[in-house]
Amino acid sequence: MFETLLLCAIPTLALRLLGAFGVTRFATWQSSAAHGLAFMLVMTGTAHFVPDSVTVMPHHSDLVAMVPSFVPFPDFTVYATGVLEYLGALGLVLAPTRRLAGLALALLFVLLLPANIHAAVDNVPFNGEPATPLWFRVPEQLVYIAVALFAALGAARVAGVARRTPVRAGESM
């Protein structure tokens, strides 16, 4: 039940620790969280394309079963959301696109909430395991929305500071 959450939290903490030891890319919590969320998205995005024969992780059919009946083309929808997760991960690790990626991912996570609610309420099993209860799924999704916004707003704040910092004669950027 906590595996996906750990796929975001552990890389975030490890990367921030690297930042504390001087790796400038991870010098802020926002950057570390963006990269941690990107790691999780690559892992979860992979499940969108994994065939049923793979048993070590959730697979495409598990995700198709989560799609509520009002969503057309569930098979295509799962593939499309997998691609969006990969693109979002890429956008989070590239500093110039981090703000846009974080905002887009927050919206994607909101749009995916009905699938998570459907899976919990209808007891849709995931990778042969019992369904994750609603009390956990919704707050978990809210955490991902918050992390995406945290990364996006942190990127916006850093960009805003960079724009307002004047360059003096003889100094280089």
Score class of each variant (00 low, 15 high):
Ala80Phe: 04
Leu41Trp: 01
Ala89Trp: 07
Gln30His: 15
Leu112Tyr: 00
Arg137Pro: 10
Ala146Met: 04
Tyr144Met: 06
Asp122Lys: 09
Trp135Arg: 05
Leu105Met: 06
Thr55Asn: 05
Met1Leu: 11
Asp122Cys: 05
Ala159Ser: 14
Glu85Cys: 03
Arg163His: 07
Thr165Ile: 14
Phe109Ala: 05
Ala162Ile: 12
Thr132Tyr: 01
Ala119Cys: 07
Ala14Asn: 02
Leu94Asn: 01
Gln30Asp: 11
Ser53Asp: 07
Val110Leu: 11
Leu113Ala: 14
Ala156Ser: 15
Thr55Met: 05
Leu17Thr: 07
His60Cys: 05
Val23Asn: 07
Ala80Pro: 03
Val71Phe: 06
Ala106Gly: 11
Leu107Tyr: 05
Leu100Trp: 13
Pro51Met: 08
Trp29Thr: 06
Ala120Val: 04
Thr81Tyr: 00
Val71Ile: 13
Arg157Tyr: 08
Ser31Ala: 15
Ala34Pro: 04
Pro166Asp: 13
Ala162Val: 14
Phe109Gly: 03
Ser69Lys: 09
Leu149Met: 08
Pro130Ala: 09
Ile117Gly: 10
Val147Ser: 06
Val138Ile: 11
Gly154Arg: 14
Leu105Cys: 06
Gly128Lys: 00
Asn116Leu: 15
Ala152His: 12
Ala106Thr: 07
Phe136Asp: 05
Ala27Trp: 04
Pro96Asp: 05
Ala80Gly: 03
Gly36Trp: 14
Pro96Met: 03
Leu107Val: 15
Leu149Asp: 02
Met43Val: 15
